[in-house]
Nucleic acid binder design. Structure first.
Lengths: 231, 231
DNA sequence: CAGGGTGTACCGCTTTTGTGGTACACCCTG
DNA sequence: CAGGGTGTACCACAAAAGCGGTACACCCTG
């Protein structure tokens, strides 16, 4: 197995050297480059094509958050793990929004760092528990939690605009909105806490009512007729 | 310091015994009770007032998800850590929504389990990386990323016309128009007298330049940004 | 003329969509 | 209470889309 290519962005010389030293004893991870600033992120990523990037969040010049966006832009499959000393919420969310998939406090031990690099490459999201808590809190705020099943909205009452005009049920309308956002069945299922099969059912209903038979047509039709995407 | 009170709900006898054994050697954690089912969650929590609960998610009768809601109802300050073998998204989100603050796969090692109990009590959210990744994905779905300032303002952005602005070649622009009309690869191929494979090539180019990876996203992006659709 | 960008085409492979069923548990309304 | 509409879920199968290659022939432009 070829080792995993890692690129490091860390302005603190000591810490950067520590990292280099650490990974020197990690056969399955090869640090192909380490930079003290992010001025050349794009080139660096384009050149090295790293599987994983360790990105300090506080750096002079281009900071780690902006740099993360740049990394994902140049190489969407590269996984970015943020390194930070602080736990500021804004920073966390900005970084995650920009595509970071790991978020570690610098006080994490060496083993944890190494393991995190491996994990993020295997599709995980290593995250210090303190960070995870903040993400969860945010999660709760934005999900007013319609507790388990049994919701029964008799209300809601989509006021007769789109729904009646097209004959779409409220649920179908929601699914259509998701389609228009370019989401896959899986994503829609996750978003609405239902199975992908149920998503299929609803979509079949939408296709029948809109007289289309593919996602592309449905999206096109919905956007052009203004049935969705009006937010 | 008085030890931290822990209550365990786990139907598998062997695993429950393992947990008991594990925490017997953990002075700062005292397992005050362990149950094979959740029939008496409310009473148990009311009686023991545990700081932390370890909750198996798959249990006969009342499952761990419902039980979690019950725990938080009786004792909001009690921290609940879910234990599970599967990584089903529904389960994860339902549990987190119901107030769980930790989420571990059962394959986690003993040390990790013990440390997680301590961490959740200290305000963290221990979470297996695989779980964290799913939470982040959901996070992304519901936060359509306002794209915090990327680094390249100079690079692109010559506002001549659509093609230059996006870097799409004329041919790609044509194909994008066809996509937006809801056409399939076959139909596009027929329309332009080229093979479906060539259509694929062009579409791959479009996806790369628009930073999307499905027809749905491409259509959505194009219509919303006015790259196509000749409004 | 070498090299880059473009447009064309083919290959194999995995994942996602689409189609057509069945099923059940809720409403609500006649 | 029977029946329709809705929302949920599962199954199996076929078609479409997506991903990663390779290849070659243009047409520029340095």
């Amino acid at each position: 197995m070829t080792p995993l290519r890692l690129v490091i962005f860390e302005d603190n010389n000591d810490f950067r050297e520590s990292l280099l030293h650490l990974f020197r004893f990690t056969p399955d991870v090869e640090v192909v480059a380490a930079y003290p600033d992010c001025s050349g992120v794009r080139n660096a990523v384009a050149q090295w094509k790293p599987e994983v990037v360790l990105m300090d969040i506080d750096m002079p010049g281009t900071n780690g958050i902006e740099a993360t966006a740049a990394v994902k832009e140049v190489s969407p499959t590269t996984q970015v793990v943020m390194l930070t000393v602080s736990e500021e919420e804004d920073r966390i969310f900005q970084a995650l929004r920009n595509g970071a998939t790991g978020y570690l406090l610098k006080k994490s031990g060496p083993d944890e760092l190494v393991e995190s690099v491996r994990l993020v490459h295997k599709g995980g999201s290593p995250m210090s528990p303190a960070i995870a808590r903040k993400v969860l809190q945010f999660f709760h705020l934005n999900l007013p939690a319609p507790q388990a099943a049994a919701v029964t909205h008799k209300a809601l009452e989509t006021d007769d605009d789109d729904a009646l005009a097209t004959g779409l049920t409220p649920r179908e309308q929601e699914i259509l909105e998701a389609l228009v956002d370019g989401l896959s069945y899986k994503m829609i299922a996750a978003k609405h806490f239902i199975s992908t099969d149920t998503v299929k059912n609803h979509i079949q209903g939408i296709y029948r009512k809109l007289h289309v038979n593919s996602k592309g047509e449905a999206i096109s039709y919905a956007l052009k007729k203004g049935l969705a995407g009006n937010r």
